[in-house]
């Protein structure tokens, strides 16, 4: 009986507040828009039954997504931005993780704390911090003008470049931690063995360190890519009108245009796109835990 309650409580909670809401999204994505509150006309009522529902099922919202170039451009540009920022984060994050793993025993807890600290700091504030740096009269431009590298201020804020900086900045710890964990487990004698067998330092790194930290790299990349794809805060604070990201489109569709059916359809398609990286990520995690 007690065991039943233990399972039933979290189970029921997740069914009611995770699965059911999601099914509602799917349902509304198949409805027609209406100028009322709630602003959609339901396609499904229990009186008519499932047969009638299936007969009237229409995909016009999804068809609409393919017709209006805004949507598919937003999907493509989200994918592109997420991909590029993942690569950039890896390029910055790997040397940091490597340096941490090579640091002396007494330094490591401090470095670890410095990486974890931003985790606990407000995401919003960390994005906001860049607004003062990247703006026209911001610190970056002041600094560059002072050094004489540029003579007129650069426009960075409200461009896609700012979005890249924001994503790399906020998700850097997500990249560093799994790679550090993988490198930390790496047995130092493996590299010595490789060098003993005739590898140079660089080729030992390339042939031993990189493959041994592969699972960490993959985990880190997915941990950056997946949330970056649906990101809303960063493009809306740092990006400009030219920055198309699907999270922002969904928000505007919902709050500004009040077109709930289309917003729901956007959400459903976004989730379909996300399923592929999520499944790949799960597989990698499973393989990594099996290898342990």
């Amino acid at each position: 009986m007690r065991r039943f309650a233990l399972i039933a409580l979290p189970y029921a909670w997740l069914l009611a507040l995770f699965l059911v809401p999601f099914l509602i999204v799917v349902k509304i994505s198949l409805s027609d828009v209406a100028l009322s509150i709630p602003p959609y006309s339901p396609q499904f009522s229990w009186d008519e039954g499932i047969g009638a529902f299936l007969a009237e099922l229409d995909f016009e919202n999804f068809v609409f997504l393919t017709q209006d170039s805004l949507y598919w451009k937003a999907y493509l540009s989200s994918l592109f931005i997420a991909l590029v920022s993942t690569v950039l984060t890896l390029m910055i994050g790997y040397p940091v993780a490597y340096g941490m793993a090579r640091a002396s025993e007494e330094w490591r807890p401090t470095l670890m704390m410095l990486i974890i600290l931003p985790f606990w700091t407000s995401f919003l504030i960390r994005v906001y911090a860049w607004m003062g740096i990247l703006s026209q009269e911001g610190f970056l431009n002041q600094f560059l003008l002072w050094t004489g590298i540029i003579s007129t201020p650069l426009t960075i804020l409200n461009t896609t470049t700012a979005v890249y900086i924001g994503i790399v900045y906020t998700y850097l710890p997500f990249m560093v931690l799994p790679i550090y964990a993988a490198l930390d487990r790496l047995d130092g004698s493996l590299i010595e063995a490789a060098e003993d067998l005739g590898c140079s330092r660089l080729s030992a790194f390339w042939l031993v360190t990189i493959p041994m930290s592969r699972n960490g790299i993959i985990a880190g990349c997915f941990l950056v890519f997946i949330p970056a794809l649906g990101e809303f805060v960063i493009p809306s604070l740092l990006g400009g009108s030219g920055t198309l990201m699907i999270g922002k489109v969904l928000w505007e569709e919902f709050f500004s245009n009040r077109d709930w059916p289309v917003a729901s359809a956007v959400a459903v398609v976004l989730l379909l796109i996300l399923i592929i990286p999520i499944v790949l990520f799960q597989r990698n995690q499973q393989r990594a835990s099996e290898a342990d």
């Binding site: 507040l17 699965l19 999601f22 509602i24 999204v25 649906g230 709930w260 729901s264 990520f281």
Partner: peptide
């Protein structure tokens, strides 16, 4: 259902909950 919300974009979680509450 335990793992999905971890990777679900916030906009989708938010939207679906709002639709439920309404």
């Amino acid at each position: 259902m335990i793992y999905a919300p971890l990777v679900m974009p916030e906009v989708i979680t938010g939207l679906s909950l709002l639709l439920l509450f309404i």
